[in-house]
């Protein structure tokens, strides 16, 4: 019964002593702190490990001029291997560029419709649909490019092969669009309603409100969405591996087959001996990809966050 009298408790126990709970709290705090910084450790780890594997090439066979300016990627030529990624960069850039041409208008249009026009249930359904589209795995997209788009392009444009910039660009555009849509829609949602109300109070119509008020206010977020789309296109592997035609080639038309940076690694890593110059060169491409996507993501984040603070 002594517990019922509050005074007893204050008199009998020394309340200023550390107990089990105090130590458990400190322990948990250090555990979750380590988990918290794990992301930093992993990012640094990724950079360190791929650099370590690629280091031999970087120190010996690597020539800045050849690597970035030569269009010849012939690492398995026994007499005079050549490690130029220009054509691969061109392949990645052309596919990503076309993907953005496809994805930007549609994803922004869809974001505007979902965010500004659709209401209630309709908006809810569309958002779910967009989320589901974003979930389709890239290998399935690659397979679609290979087995559905390929014959379609051959039929429609009367070309011998349908695995080319056009195919991969469209596939990549369809892949990137849902993610860009949902990020863009978030950016539109972040524009406070009072902006819209103020513009409407001045007699602006809905579309005037959208074009003159909402879009300018959300432009950083929208730009961030586009940049993340670009980053995604740049880093996509399986879809471009299966749909580009996989030929080292600086494309002259939409119907030329190309080869992407990522796809080169995916296709060749399995055939190279660990530690060989070819193997190390593939890791060097990895370093390049890591740095590029790091910069793209960093920029996107700075742009998006910049507006949130302002």
């Amino acid at each position: 019964m002594s517990a019922i009298n509050p005074l007893n408790r204050s008199m009998t126990t020394d309340f200023d002593s550390r107990n089990m709970d105090w130590y458990i709290d400190k322990f948990v705090q250090s555990i979750v702190f380590v988990a918290g910084i794990s992301a930093i450790i992993f990012i640094i780890g990724i950079f360190v490990f791929i650099t370590m594997e690629g280091l031999g090439f970087l120190l010996e066979d690597f020539s800045f001029r050849e690597f970035f300016l030569s269009p010849f990627w012939e690492p398995s030529d026994e007499d005079a291997p050549e490690y130029g990624i220009l054509a691969l960069v061109a392949g990645t850039a052309s596919v990503t560029g076309l993907a953005m041409v496809v994805a930007i208008p549609f994803s922004l249009g869809a974001a505007i419709f979902i965010g500004e026009f659709a209401s209630g249930k309709m908006r809810e359904y569309l958002k779910v649909l967009v989320e589901l589209l974003a979930a389709i795995p890239s290998v399935v997209w690659g397979f679609i490019g290979l087995s559905i788009m390929n014959p379609l392009i051959i039929d429609l444009f009367d070309v011998p092969v349908g695995l080319n910039v056009l195919n991969a660009g469209i596939i990549l555009g369809l892949m990137a669009a849902p993610i860009m849509t949902s990020i863009a829609e978030d950016a539109l949602k972040a524009v406070p309603d009072r902006y819209r109300e103020a513009a409407e109070a001045l007699g602006a119509t809905r579309w005037q409100v959208i074009f003159k008020t909402v879009l300018p206010a959300a432009k950083n977020g929208l730009l961030g969405a586009v940049l993340l789309g670009v980053g995604r296109g740049f880093g996509e592997t399986m879809a471009v591996l299966m749909a580009t035609g996989h030929a080292v080639n600086i494309p002259g038309s939409l119907f030329d087959p190309v080869r992407a940076l990522t796809a080169t690694i995916a296709a060749e890593l399995g055939e190279t001996a660990v530690g060989s110059p070819h193997y190390q060169a593939l890791f060097t491409i990895g370093i390049f990809l890591f740095i590029i996507t790091f910069l793209i993501n960093l920029t996107a984040d700075l742009i998006v966050r910049g507006i949130r603070k302002g």
Binding site: G36, I37, A39, I40, F42, I43, G45, I46, F49, I50, M52, E53, S138, L228, G231, R232, F234, G235, E236, T237, M238, T262, I265, A266, L269, V274, L282, F283, G286, L289, F290, T293, F294, I296, N297, L298, D301
Partner: peptide, 29 residues
């Protein structure tokens, strides 16, 4: 802020680069 940036970048690193990391770190090292 740096942790958050690291998380964003971890999500943005191309999957094939993650594969290279996996080979270098887990398979070999």
């Amino acid at each position: 802020r740096i942790i958050q940036l690291a998380i964003i970048n971890l999500a943005g690193v191309p999957s094939i680069v993650h594969a290279l990391f996996g080979v270098g770190a887990f398979v070999i090292f």
